[in-house]
């Protein structure tokens, strides 16, 4: 189907130009990484004892939100939004923890696979409802967040269950070098393995196309409804990974949704994904999650009330958007 002609006979790409163009396009993400580096240095300065333990803690603490942010990024890129991510994470988390409790490693592996499929199905249901009912996505996913959270509580009324030990080993602890948390590696690898092939495929292009300009996408022959459903299904898949991460990092399943839905929206915006759709990637939001977490840590080190971190998060979120809006209108005036 994708009989895409290879760039045979195309003039050799000028590598410098390619790098420049990549840099231009990823300027937001690069800026975020720079900010992350600065923050790490700053953290080391204000808290000289910050080291292996801090980094490891950081790795574990960002894992579930990192996946939630990626999940949200996928659907926002396709021009939608999903307010049921936290609930899907809770549901997949309790199911995994309940099924794995006291079972063999092999069974645990099967559970992981099953939960990932479940995530796809949950997301596809969300997407199908959005497409078929034509009710605004905010309303549909808000309503479905009740439904998924309700199912989570039906599976387990209280936190409990257990994660397979191998699953916990997968994310807790260092990866070779004590400075590299396994969690970060898992986050990057899982996201890369799922997202990069998709982003490179026709489907990935279609996701961006639908989010960028639905009419142009339609005229270019993109099936709008099907693409949207795929976007929501992928979001469900990443939410399921997030749910597994939650179980792995806390060793239990928690039926009550965490703050992940709303924080994922914040991370997506900070990560350079346009809420209007079509712009951004999944790694920006991941870095944004790290930045937010370090800011929170730093405020603790500076013996600020940790709650100011929340305030800071809100102010950063609003500030970034206002800045964007001012820049946009200035550009339009020119």
């Amino acid at each position: 189907m994708s009989a895409v002609t290879a760039p045979v006979g195309a003039p050799p790409a000028n590598p410098a130009r390619t790098v420049m163009s990549w840099a231009q396009r990823s300027s937001w993400a690069i800026g975020l990484v720079g900010l992350l580096a600065i923050l790490l240095v700053f953290t080391k300065i204000i808290q000289p004892s910050y080291g292996v333990a801090g980094i490891q803690g950081l790795g574990i603490s960002i894992l579930p939100l990192g996946f939630a942010a990626v999940a949200q990024a996928v659907v926002v890129i396709a021009g939608g939004i999903d307010l049921s991510i936290g609930s899907m994470m809770a549901l997949t988390s309790v199911i995994a923890a309940t099924l794995m409790d006291g079972q063999s490693a092999e069974f645990g592996l099967a559970v992981v696979a099953g939960v990932l499929v479940l995530g796809l199905v949950l997301g596809a249901i969300n997407g199908a409802l959005v497409v078929v009912t034509r009710v605004p996505d905010i309303v549909v996913t808000l309503a479905m967040s009740f439904v998924w959270a309700g199912f989570a509580l039906l599976v387990r009324a209280a936190p409990g269950g257990a994660a397979s030990p191998w699953l916990m080993n997968l994310v807790i602890g260092p990866f070779g070098n004590p400075w590299i948390p396994k969690a970060a590696i898992v986050l990057v690898i899982v996201v890369a393995v799922i997202w990069i092939p998709i982003a490179r495929s026709r489907m990935g292009l279609s996701l961006y196309a639908v989010g960028s300009n639905q009419l142009a996408a339609f005229r270019s022959g993109v099936p709008i409804g099907r693409t949207k459903i795929v976007a929501y299904a992928l979001t469900g898949l990443f939410a399921a990974v997030g749910g597994l991460a939650l179980t792995a990092s806390t060793s239990i399943g928690t039926p009550v949704p965490g703050p992940y839905t709303l924080e994922s929206v914040a991370a997506v915006v900070l990560g350079g994904v346009s809420l209007a759709g079509g712009r951004g990637g999944v790694f920006g939001p991941v870095v944004a999650v790290m930045v937010l977490q370090i800011i929170q840590n730093d405020m603790t080190f500076l013996s600020f009330d940790p709650n100011f971190a929340l305030v800071a998060q809100g102010v950063i979120l609003i500030g970034v958007l206002i800045l964007g809006s001012v820049l946009e209108s200035r550009r339009a005036r020119r």
């Binding site: 292009l205 961006y208 196309a209 989010g211 960028s212 300009n213 009419l215 142009a216 996408a217 005229r219 270019s220 079509g278 712009r279």
Partner: peptide
Amino acid sequence: QEPSLIPDL
């Protein structure tokens, strides 16, 4: 009349 290229690709 309006080009149907996707602006963000």
